[in-house]
């Protein structure tokens, strides 16, 4: 077996006395699409916040490619090759779609982004990445519009596109289809499946048909803990998963 790209040990995130993430041990194999599912409030987004450094964890350890990144700030983890999209769309609303993507690409430039004298033309690479991404997301026609004027579905696609622009080794997508209309969902599904070819993907998703069709491994979370982990087939047949979801619904 290859060594995991991302590994957590006993990861815990507490909001006061409440443990949103409670002793999670996760293991992501490189080159796979790994999904995290679970009822509302299970702690999936909180888990992402821990992995990307958005929140400071209360306990445990995070290893990326064998390196301890537990104390690394969010921007430092991007530099190592992690990038994420947000469940609640978070764009540069008043900047153009192209600029959103270009800024996301430039985010990996580290100190070079502090260059305050040379014109942007001297950093062509990021603009090229943005143009490529515009094509791939089918947003070229809207490239110059402010991101805030896109339709909801297009904003979700841009949200994911910004994460890809960093060319990360591990891509973390938090419910990319959330709030999308049925018309847009196939585009997103295709996009994610394609991503699986070049990146390792950690995916939070409520849409079961997407999860079951593209995942290599599925982790089911409930109340901050891992309930079940396995192949789509195994998870589908697990009784505990059904009770977790039904219990929530009842």
């Amino acid at each position: 077996m290859t060594s995991p790209l991302l590994e957590t040990r006993d990861l815990t995130l507490a909001y006061g006395a409440f443990h949103a993430v409670d002793g999670v041990g996760l293991c992501i194999q490189p080159g796979t699409i790994h999904s995290v599912i679970g009822p509302n409030g299970a702690g999936k987004t909180s888990l992402f916040h821990c992995l990307t450094g958005e929140r400071r964890i209360s306990g445990g350890q995070i290893l990326f490619d064998g390196r301890d990144i537990t104390r690394r700030p969010a921007h430092g983890r991007v530099a190592l090759g992690m990038a994420r999209s947000f469940q609640i769309t978070s764009l540069f609303q008043n900047l153009s779609v192209r600029e959103n993507l270009r800024l996301a690409a430039q985010g990996t430039a580290g100190w070079r982004a502090l260059d305050f004298w040379r014109r942007l033309d001297s950093h062509r690479r990021h603009a090229a990445t943005a143009d490529e991404m515009l094509e791939r997301l089918a947003l070229t026609a809207r490239a110059e519009l402010p991101a805030g004027t896109l339709s909801h579905g297009q904003q979700r696609i841009l949200e994911v596109g910004m994460a890809i622009c960093a060319r990360p080794r591990l891509l973390l997508l938090d419910e990319p289809t959330s709030g999308m209309g049925v018309d847009d969902i196939p585009t997103m599904t295709r996009l994610i499946a394609e991503l699986g070819r070049d990146h390792t993907v950690l995916l939070i998703e409520h849409n079961m048909s997407i999860v079951m069709s593209i995942s290599d491994t599925i982790t089911v979370m409930n109340r901050g803990q891992i309930l079940v982990e396995g192949t789509p087939q195994a998870v589908r047949e697990d009784a505990r998963v059904r009770t977790a979801y039904l219990g929530e619904a009842a």
Partner: peptide
């Protein structure tokens, strides 16, 4: 410059600017 464009990003949405690596 690259720096100036990043300032605008920070003004627009600092959390996202940090999340994309700045």
């Amino acid at each position: 410059s690259a720096f100036g464009s990043t300032l605008l990003a920070i003004r627009e949405n600092e959390a996202r600017a940090a999340a994309v690596g700045y």
